[in-house]
Design a protein around this nucleic acid. Sequence first.
DNA 1: ATTCTTATTGAAACATTTTTTCAATAAGGA
DNA 2: TCCTTATTGAAAAAATGTTTCAATAAGAAT
Lengths: 142, 142
Amino acid sequence: MDLQLKLNQQGLRLTRPRRVVMNILQSAPMPLAPQAIFKTAVNSQEEISLVSVYRTLDLLEELSLVRKVHGHDGCHGYVLASPGHHHHIICQQCGRAVEFTGIGDLADVFERIVAETGFDVDDHLLQLYGFCPQCQKEKTEK
Amino acid sequence: MDLQLKLNQQGLRLTRPRRVVMNILQSAPMPLAPQAIFKTAVNSQEEISLVSVYRTLDLLEELSLVRKVHGHDGCHGYVLASPGHHHHIICQQCGRAVEFTGIGDLADVFERIVAETGFDVDDHLLQLYGFCPQCQKEKTEK
DNA sequence: ATTCTTATTGAAACATTTTTTCAATAAGGA
DNA sequence: TCCTTATTGAAAAAATGTTTCAATAAGAAT
Ligand SMILES: [Mn+2]
Ligand SMILES: [Mn+2]
Ligand SMILES: [Zn+2]
Ligand SMILES: [Zn+2]
């Protein structure tokens, strides 16, 4: 659906900062932290304030248009998220993040955990870490 | 193994700050952020500086004695970790974190992802979110 | 017990990240 | 074009994390 529409339907407005953040995330293959998004904007002469980056990210996350990705270390960045439930596999070399979906297989696993812990499972976070095809190639070339 | 021994074997020393942090984590059922650990220490008259909390957490993580846990929101805390590979299931109500292990089942899933993405998978992060038995009970009682 | 080496601490200054406030602005329905 | 109000940005404040370095204390050696 159109972003403009999606926002307007909820009484929200499509503003320059929101467009800027969306554009930056769209052309970024890797998760970007708020600060990184801000610097990218400044570098490309896009007017935006850091405060707006934070606010916009909160909003876009609320709308499920972006998703938070946890680095191996703990700091997190944001990536564009296609609709629906999915996970990310992240390159430890270049940072590239690729979506993957469709793990019905996990349902069984969750069943077992529920049985074992008595928890009522609601949601989950699954991220894989490794090396993307390009970075693998570069490694062997050395 | 004994903490004292484990440290000394590597030329490291068992100090008061390290004992304090370990004790706090041992009696905490939920992940604690550095600041929370610091405040807990201060509240119980334990002398320690915030800097030492950070340094100690880095060290304990290095030694695989504690583990970083990602909150649903993005901020992370630390929990005591038993040796070996495992994951956490976290209560969205009270924060309690419980370990679980033994997901050989995931191996198949990973195989598929590797095939699909061309990534070389190295490591992964899996956390479940839900409600612990106690918090479920409290919910139905209302 | 005492001494000695040096790993470790804590205070302080610094750096970075995030949040709050509020008057000025501009998005978009009327 | 006008009007309402959602949204912005500047600025200040708050919160979080890091660096530095002289003083301290852990623990091995004597
Ligand atoms: Mn999933
Ligand atoms: Mn695992
Ligand atoms: Zn890569
Ligand atoms: Zn709970």
